[in-house]
Design a protein around this nucleic acid. Structure first.
Lengths: 198, 198
DNA sequence: GCATTATTTAATTGTATTATTAAATACGCG
DNA sequence: CGCGTATTTAATAATACAATTAAATAATGC
């Protein structure tokens, strides 16, 4: 049952955020008594943390993965952008929840910060090294690793942040939106690769 | 007093969102009794709508403005990107509130949709015409107007969505962040202008 | 100055929600 | 089976909140 509660919580938190989701609702979705939610997770806050940590890990995981494949910088960058896009595409509500919680709840930000600091030598170390090498070679314009990550995240996240709005305004079907997303993914790759050129 | 309540509501809604802000808190911030909030706005929902509509209007206003100046397409595009960036820069919490509310509240989305449909001939009509002319001229790669707007909004919004995270992780001062934002604005212009090239 | 309306407050109601407690049921193992 | 533990439920306490009401105060026009 614990897993059903977690799954129900994830679904509802993603759909409505922390504040608008009640433990009663989570219990109903999971098919159990409301008290059971508290039996397993004590407080709504702790339940949310469990969900959020998993999602946050998912969200940033792409940039942590070290691909040992023998690819060029551009090819590796492309893979990272696409992997990141795919994760968000599979969890389109994730960015809104992620940014909203980190923006409106200082405590959440602090938790996130302490978790990230557990990771030694910075999360973008490998990417930074790659980038600096390419810059030294003159193959990439001088830029900070954060600049690059920000561009990628901004572009990848943008489609899904605006998706509800876009769908409501255009009345696009989910299938056609999916097609559009596929095109957008490669477009994002193109934009980033063009943007990093010197 | 009505204006103080509106201002207090705007401040708190931007900081904590709709659900986590109470009318009691708004009253305290405005320096009045809680009942007065309801006297002027009847419900918390209606107060929020008043705030949100103003903010939403601000957020999309940039793309509606028709600049009659005799500038090239690229120059006009640059002006629009910069104006949009400046508005968000002046209201950094706006994007989170905007996307969160439109994503988590179907009613809000419907209100927004009906408001937008009041505007005749579509909000991006002028921009679309300009864009299609440039495409016909071969000066701009074939693309939909939504693609372009999405790219601009994604890039402009990205910095401020990630700002709390970025600040927490790097401990950057507000002044240095401001400098960074200025650079980012011109960088966004560069990226977009490069991306639209054929 | 008085009557009328607008503004503001204090008090209260109803309700939703988190969290706890104690009891009931299922489950595993000797 | 039967004992102990884990799981689940029902009931309820405690609280925070939106919203209403009635009364008080201030402002406005005559």
């Amino acid at each position: 049952m614990e897993q059903e509660i977690l799954a129900a919580a994830e679904k509802l938190f993603l759909a409505k955020g922390f504040a608008l989701t009640s433990t009663t609702e989570i219990a109903r979705e999971a098919g159990c008594n409301q008290a059971l939610v508290h039996y397993y997770f004590r407080t709504k806050e702790r339940l949310f943390q469990a969900v959020f940590e998993k999602l946050a890990r998912l969200f940033v995981s792409t940039f942590l993965q070290i691909d040992e494949e023998d690819l060029s910088f551009e090819e590796r960058l492309q893979k990272k952008i696409e992997a990141h896009f795919d994760i968000i595409s599979a969890n389109p509500a994730l960015p809104v929840l992620f940014f909203n919680e980190l923006s409106t709840n200082p405590q959440r930000l602090e938790e996130f910060r302490s978790r990230v600091s557990e990771i030694p030598s910075g999360i973008f170390q490998r990417l930074r090294e790659d980038l600096e090498r390419e810059i030294a070679r003159g193959a990439v314009r001088p830029m900070d690793v954060f600049e690059l990550v920000l561009t990628v995240v901004s572009l990848n996240v943008g489609l899904f942040l605006t998706a509800p709005l876009f769908k409501a305004l255009t009345g696009i079907t989910d299938e056609r939106f999916q097609e559009l997303a596929v095109r957008r993914k490669s477009e994002n790759v193109r934009i980033v690769l063009t943007a990093v050129k010197p």
